[in-house]
């Protein structure tokens, strides 16, 4: 196996010319058991650095610190819960239901605005009512229809006053 690349990297490492990525390559190389004799003496350095990197505080330290700053260690613990597929979709159902209700209410409101049965003036209302009554009375005897229109007009006058 050709170790030229590793030897070159190592030379550049001593000269502080390697990038962090190249240093990671070196570290990974020296972690393996199968290192050639010429490079073996340097393996210890990288092993030792791994050792130092593994040094850490005990678990009780974190708990002690949280107590010191008044943050309860158990406050932020989240319990893992297994969710079914249908349960995962529940928020979407809820959102879709809410949207449907809002659309229905909005549509109903729009409809009530469009079905405006008030008229701009009394004359317009009277004229529309008379036209409607005349349409109804087509085919009835002339006197009866005239009497119906007159009665209806009087009623409208009374209502609009």
């Amino acid at each position: 196996m050709d170790y030229k690349y590793i030897e070159q990297l190592l030379e550049r490492y001593w000269e502080c010319q390697t990038t962090l990525e190249e240093e990671a390559i070196l570290r990974n190389f020296f972690r393996q058991e199968d290192v050639p004799a010429s490079l073996l003496p340097y393996r210890q350095l990288f092993i030792e650095e791994d050792e130092i990197a593994a040094e850490h505080l005990g678990k009780d330290f974190a708990e002690k610190m949280l107590q010191l700053v008044g943050e309860d260690a158990s406050v932020h613990v989240c319990k893992a819960r297994r969710l079914t597929f249908m349960r995962r979709l529940r928020p979407f159902y809820r959102a879709a239901g809410l949207v449907a209700i809002m659309l229905t209410i909005g549509d109903a409101a729009q409809q009530s605005f469009n079905d405006d049965d008030t008229f701009a003036s009394q004359q317009v209302a009277e004229q529309i009512a008379i036209d409607s009554l005349q349409n109804i009375t087509i085919g009835q005897p002339e006197q009866q229809s005239a009497a119906l229109v007159t009665t209806s007009t009087d009623t409208l006058d009374a209502m609009t006053r």
Binding site: R31, Q44, L45, I47, E48, D50, E51, A54, E55, H56
Partner: peptide
């Protein structure tokens, strides 16, 4: 100092050399 599993698997000779580097 807590020794990692990695180091605990090293031979005595290797550990001595590790101490030297340390």
């Amino acid at each position: 100092i807590q020794l990692s599993t990695f180091n605990s698997q090293l031979s005595l000779e290797a550990r001595e050399q590790v101490s030297l580097v340390r």
